[in-house]
Design a binder for these strands. Structure first.
Length: 427
DNA sequence: CTATAACTCTCAA
DNA sequence: CTAACGTTGAGAGTTATAG
């Protein structure tokens, strides 16, 4: 029988930004999505102000100014670096770890019951706090779904959790009472659409869901929800996934900093995104058999003429060559582009992905040429790994990239750039 | 008609 | 000055299509 601990960093992106600037202690901090579009992370002070997750930045800008909120553009290099450090610490507590997202990991802690799992959870919390200055909460339970829920309780300080909540030793009556106080929408897998549908059936709390009729839910909804139900009842249906499988599709898309009108700028963007996507593809040692390119105008502004189009082409031969993919991308974009629109976003998707080894060659392919191209891409990747992404790139990507996303509030690369090292000023 | 492909919907962080 | 609203990936279910 597994026992899962879900360890989740509090306000992760905002906490990372605060970490390197002591003046931000007690200051409300938000982190913005790409293009400085929406609020994607809020410090405790911001949550206390009632600012909702996901709100467009421009809509709260005035309010933010009044409250002295400090905003940061998202700095994924920083967050990924801190995330790796957290995982290193967590790995000391269990050999079985699933890195579920940038700020969450599941640990299998069965076998560590000795001093009590809650105590173990407190040690985890303590060590991450001491070594990295980041606060985590720990939820412990016999299934992943319940561990998620226990983590929620730890965060909200329900049942006197204080950062750690262990369902495995909770008396059933206490657990029932607790689950009665939590909205069904908090359950992992119950989202925006499912919540109101369940509520309409009289299922408003986690306890209602747990005690609902499995057969009815199966027929009215899906096997996914039935699985959730079993997990809530304590039967583990979701295993710890320690090895990350290869991606089946690789997407790269961005909103532009300013609207883009002309084809050539779009071509640069598509070539750039394809370079990035192909790099990811090569990293996992795969080839793509199909390529999608799409462009669209803003879906939000009702006064702008709308247009969106996506086209997928199967490639005659699967490839991971940036130049070949860029050439195909160019052809597709030329085909879907319509002049006279204010484009807001473009994107590419690589699909029909397969391992590079034992790839089926086409009748007319030259394996010698393929190998040479492979070596070229390898050299390109090595140079960019050594000297930084974008050191060597396709001419088609353009030089000025005036379509690039906005990042007006970027913090220094505290842990990733020499120039970003915090300095102490003499006084 | 069946098997599969293609597309849509939902969810998550 | 004004207008301005993220990205990536998976899986299930549904619909379209080919043979």
């Amino acid at each position: 029988m597994p026992i899962f601990a879900l360890v989740d960093c509090n306000n992760f992106y905002a906490s990372c930004e605060k970490l390197f600037d002591p003046r931000l202690a007690g200051v409300p901090v938000v982190v913005l999505s790409n293009n400085d579009g929406c609020v994607v992370a809020r410090s405790a002070e911001v949550k206390a102000l009632g600012i909702p997750m996901g709100v467009p930045w421009f809509r709260i800008r005035e309010q933010a100014r009044r409250h002295g909120i400090v905003a940061f553009s998202s700095n994924y290099a920083l967050y990924a670096d801190m995330s790796n450090r957290v995982v290193e610490v967590l790995a000391q507590f269990s050999p079985d770890i699933e890195v579920y997202s940038i700020d969450e990991s599941f640990l299998d802690v069965s076998g560590f019951e000795g001093t009590g799992l809650a105590e173990y959870g407190r040690q985890i919390r303590e060590r991450v706090q001491r070594w990295l200055g980041l606060t985590v909460c720990v939820g412990i339970a016999p299934t992943k779904t319940l561990a998620k829920l226990a983590n929620h309780c730890a965060k909200k300080n329900l049942a006197g959790a204080a950062g750690v909540c262990d369902f495995t030793i909770m008396p059933p009556a206490d657990l029932d009472a607790l689950l009665t106080r939590i909205d069904v929408g908090e359950v992992w897998g119950v989202g925006r659409k499912l919540t109101p549908r369940l509520q309409a059936m009289g299922i408003g709390t986690v306890r209602d869901l747990r005690d609902a009729d499995a057969e009815t839910l199966r027929s009215r909804f899906s096997v996914v929800l039935e699985r959730t139900l079993r997990e809530l009842r304590g039967t583990s249906c979701l295993a710890l996934e320690e090895v990350v499988p290869d991606k089946q599709q690789i997407i790269c898309s961005r909103s532009f900093g300013e609207r883009v009108h002309d084809l050539e700028a779009l071509q640069e963007a598509v070539a750039s995104y394809l370079s990035r996507a192909a790099e990811k593809l090569r990293q996992q040692g795969s080839l793509a058999g199909a390529l999608t390119v799409y462009i669209r105008t803003s879906p939000f502004n009702p006064s702008e003429p709308r247009y969106q189009k996506a086209v997928t082409v199967p490639l005659p031969e699967a490839t991971a060559d940036s130049r070949l993919l860029a050439r195909w991308g160019r052809r597709i974009l030329k085909q879907i582009y319509r002049p006279g629109f204010a484009y807001q976003k473009a994107g590419v998707m690589l699909s029909d992905i397969r391992p590079r080894l034992r790839n089926q060659l086409s009748l007319f392919s030259s394996s010698r040429a393929t190998r040479a191209n492979g070596r070229l891409m390898q050299a390109l990747d090595q140079i960019n790994a050594r000297w930084g992404r974008g050191t060597l790139r396709l001419a088609a990507e353009g030089l000025d990239k005036e379509w690039q996303m906005k990042r007006g509030h970027l913090s220094p690369g505290y842990t990733t750039e020499w120039a970003g090292l915090p300095t102490v000023k003499a006084r």
